[in-house]
């Protein structure tokens, strides 16, 4: 029976996660574009407006989720594109490490900025 658990492969999980994040991103990206280009115009953005939006807890959480899923979806896409080109062995491990570090840095920085925009972590 233990063998069955080992049949769970990283390839399949990443594939599924890529699809699941895709479904979320369809809505998140469409919402984001619509809100910040058509409802609020990009050239009118001021810090106060951003802060007002970020102080809505639902919006704040959506944006954090948007950041995390988009980073995963994008970086995993890049990684797969490279594997499809025949990236193997040590270069592949190095690339994976770089991509993971870049993703963590991006998500960390993004969350920090979001908290700053919100004006602290207060609810």
């Amino acid at each position: 029976m233990a063998e069955r658990y080992s049949s769970f492969t990283p390839g399949g999980t990443a594939w599924l996660l890529q699809r699941v994040t895709a479904v979320f991103l369809i809505f998140a990206l469409a919402f984001h574009f619509f809100l910040l280009h058509f409802v609020n115009h990009a050239w009118e953005i001021e810090f106060a407006g951003t802060q007002a939006r970020m102080q809505d807890l639902g919006y704040f959480i959506t944006m954090i989720l948007f950041l995390i899923t988009a980073t995963f979806h994008g970086v995993n896409g890049v990684y797969n594109a490279l594997i499809n080109q025949g990236l193997t062995g040590t270069p592949r491990k190095v690339v994976l490490a770089i991509l993971v570090l870049a993703s963590l840095a991006l998500v960390g920085q993004g969350i920090w900025v979001a908290i700053e925009m919100r004006g602290g972590l207060i609810l």
Partner: peptide, 24 residues
Amino acid sequence: TGWVLIGYLFTHIAVLSSALAGPE
């Protein structure tokens, strides 16, 4: 388009990081 979007995401966060230097 995927490459463009992930590239933009990194730039986007970088630009928004100006919030760390204050509202102005």
